[in-house]
Write a protein that binds this DNA or RNA. Structure first.
Lengths: 114, 114
DNA sequence: AACCATACATAATAATCTTATGTATAATTG
DNA sequence: CAATTATACATAAGATTATTATGTATGGTT
């Protein structure tokens, strides 16, 4: 687990990345996927995730679709057209940012592909 | 310039990295160095930097030394012994974190050295 | 029966940053 | 030589974003 300050500010971009890759996901699934992809190093808390998802919806970045699994409710999120454009911008900003961080902390711009 | 949310949480670690490399620096110098190293993509604001430096001092991570350049004051910061240990931990956490981000966003762990 | 996993949600509080403002000296430029 | 820009510190109000705690409810496992 990383200190929470490092993860600060990356949540929204992580969500956009996953939605772009997977098409649609629900909240609980997002926390599980991130945990799995990062070997438990990044643990998204519900108190951070749900308000973020609601904000994305309010901003027209995602739409929701509620499904019923037995008597339980699942709320799927997927990108809107605007959301896809937004995600594209945010993701390229993120990779650029990661490269800049690499320059600062590893003294190299790194290679995009090994 | 990156959206400010991305940079959020990285400031303290950036400062520790620079102080570790350079020995001692003053606030204004830090903003200039970061601007230079990142081609202006990361602009540290004074309103964020000075409170951070003061907090580091209050936590015993850095000590200060005031110099007089003509009639102007310059406040140099350098790591304490505890600060060096702290910096070491934070920096390895940061490189680890950057690798994890690379897995998430570029689908590769990347190579530390080209 | 108790516990843990799934699945949503919100509210109080904390941490961190932006934006604005303030003070002052030194250098540059029109 | 007056005005502007750069150097150099600092703080305070407000915004953003996350943590922590709490709440509700279903379903599976021990």
């Amino acid at each position: 687990m990383y200190s929470s300050e490092l993860i600060r500010g990356t949540l929204k971009t992580i969500v956009l990345k996953l939605l772009k890759d997977e098409g649609k996901m629900y909240g609980y699934e997002i926390t599980a996927r991130v945990r799995e992809l990062t070997d438990g190093k990044i643990e998204i808390t519900e108190g951070a995730l749900y308000p973020t998802l609601h904000a994305l919806e309010a901003d027209g970045i995602v739409t929701t679709e509620t499904m019923h699994i037995g008597r339980r409710v699942r709320k799927y999120y997927k990108l809107t057209a605007e959301g896809r454009a937004n995600a594209k911008r945010k993701l390229s900003e993120m990779t650029d940012f990661l490269n800049t961080m690499r320059i600062l902390f590893e003294g190299t711009a790194g290679l995009k592909h090994a």
